[in-house]
Amino acid sequence: MKLPICVFDAKNAVLCPQCEGKVDSGDLTRADVDASIILANTAKSNNDIENFTLFSCKEFDGNFVLFLAKNDIMTIRQSRTLYRLLQDQFKGKIWLVEADETDKKFIEDLFFPTKILSINSVWAPGEIQKTKAVVSGKWTPRFPIDTEKVIKIVKSARNLDIEIEFEDKR
């Protein structure tokens, strides 16, 4: 398991002076530490998690965005049981995204399993970038993804102003 903090620290839920220094300097966030501890504790009962690589975790209004390796995301998405197990460990909703990916891939990961038809960016006067994502299908009250949360996460994590539109108008 690869984590932002030492694996020993994560398993014991106590930070060594080196990791404590990274938190104090701002290199690591409290969400990085919490997510590392949660994954290490969950790995004790689930061997799939033992091979995970967590690059970082960001918290936005009770939403936890986990930046993981591509294979780890696939493992979680193929097992509803594993997803629920992880979701139950966090205080808020978890969002799984690939680390070091493009803005387009980041947005697609947030909308998984919903299909994104297109993502377009335009530059407005004053160096302002506007991004529009067109989602497959029709919006209904039962749509599984809170689009307002996605807008806030994209703005906070990538500093992009995004507009979400559905293929079929309401």
Score class of each variant (00 low, 15 high):
94 I>E: 01
95 W>K: 07
95 W>G: 03
96 L>H: 09
96 L>K: 07
97 V>F: 05
98 E>F: 00
98 E>A: 00
99 A>K: 13
100 D>P: 05
101 E>M: 08
102 T>L: 10
102 T>C: 08
104 K>T: 10
104 K>Y: 07
104 K>I: 08
104 K>Q: 10
105 K>R: 11
106 F>L: 10
106 F>P: 03
106 F>I: 08
107 I>R: 01
108 E>F: 02
108 E>W: 01
109 D>R: 13
110 L>W: 00
110 L>E: 01
112 F>L: 04
112 F>H: 11
112 F>K: 03
112 F>C: 04
113 P>Q: 11
113 P>M: 11
114 T>A: 14
115 K>L: 14
116 I>S: 03
116 I>Y: 02
118 S>V: 02
118 S>Q: 07
121 S>Q: 14
122 V>K: 13
122 V>R: 12
123 W>N: 07
124 A>D: 07
124 A>N: 07
125 P>N: 15
126 G>N: 05
126 G>A: 04
126 G>W: 04
126 G>T: 05
127 E>G: 00
128 I>C: 02
128 I>Q: 09
130 K>T: 11
132 K>R: 06
132 K>H: 02
133 A>T: 09
133 A>M: 11
133 A>Y: 04
133 A>W: 04
133 A>S: 10
134 V>W: 04
134 V>S: 05
135 V>N: 02
135 V>I: 15
137 G>N: 07
138 K>F: 09
139 W>R: 14
140 T>L: 11
141 P>M: 02
142 R>V: 06
143 F>P: 07
145 I>P: 01
145 I>V: 13
146 D>R: 04
148 E>F: 09
148 E>N: 13
150 V>F: 06
150 V>W: 05
151 I>H: 09
151 I>Y: 06
151 I>R: 15
153 I>H: 01
153 I>E: 01
153 I>M: 03
158 R>K: 15
158 R>V: 10
159 N>P: 07
159 N>T: 12
159 N>V: 10
160 L>E: 09
160 L>Y: 13
160 L>C: 12
161 D>S: 12
161 D>T: 13
161 D>F: 12
161 D>W: 09
163 E>Q: 12
164 I>R: 05
164 I>D: 03
165 E>H: 08
166 F>H: 08
166 F>Y: 12
